[in-house]
Amino acid sequence: MTPKSKAQDKSNTNKARTRVSKTYKLFIAGKFPRTESGRYYAFTAQSAGSSFKANICTSSRKDFRNAVVAARSVQKSWAAASACLRGQILYRLAEILEDRRDQFIGELILQGASIKHANKEVDASIDRLVYYAGWSDKYQQIFSNVNPVSSSHFNFSILEPTGVVAILPPAAEENQCGLLGMISNIAPAIVGGNTCVFLTNEKQPLTAISFAEVIQASDVPGGVVNILTGSNVELMALFASHKDVNSLVHMEKSLEDNKKIQELASENLKRVICRSEMRWHENIAESPYMIEETQEVKTTWHPIGN
């Protein structure tokens, strides 16, 4: 173990000192509330030899509702921030994550990653934030157009954010240890002016809540990203059915879950985006098309003449 990652080991090095452990809470509207339900589940380290334990909030329907309210209330102002500013804020996320990389390597290990993988995942996560930061003032230029209509009108189409994006977690599979999958879905949503509510995989709550601390330290306005922990099965239906959510991103592979999600999403015609086949560590898992997926096309006409 390198000295750096040793420093991140949650075990106590000084036997005489009682360790102060972090309470993992939710992240809603830029604050860290506990779940209103008072429910929790126990997380235990997946890495051999670690005795790390944490009680993780089991979010309720009301927590989710609060998160959607928070996301909705800042969506307009976040979308109104200049593209350049949104890019700088995403870049700032990358800076702070780089700064805290050892903490995340430690938590990824607790979530079951090898040291090698944890390093690779943190690297890729930082790079992905930089990648999307760079798109902030460019995707519009790729996807917008002036349309050559036959009548005497000036006509153009631009992208606008779809609004509030709910994101269900990637599966906790090998090579997907919780940080990269989360960032790969949050970044394209928010760089395009959406706000989001992200649900963490039950097995990967540590990096998600710690990333919330990175968000809080990075000039991302409160409410732009909200992060919940809890029962994925219980919250999936709520995410898919909430009437004030515009888009739903999910990575469910099973036919049954896909069916259930789309059925519930049809109640208010949510845009459903399925990213079940993504290999998050590869370049293929980042593209401006992932920004476009949570955008609407607006076309404006104006007469040319007097």
């Binding site: 349309n147 050559p148 209509v149 036959s150 009548s151 009108h153 006509n155 189409s157 609407e296 096309v297 607006k298 076309t299 404006t300 006409w301 104006h302 007469p303």
Partner: peptide
């Protein structure tokens, strides 16, 4: 809304989404 007409209305064109 997806289509906005300013100082006009109900105009359509194949090139216009």
């Amino acid at each position: 809304a997806g289509v906005i007409w300013a100082n006009t209305f109900n105009k359509f064109d194949p090139a216009s989404p």
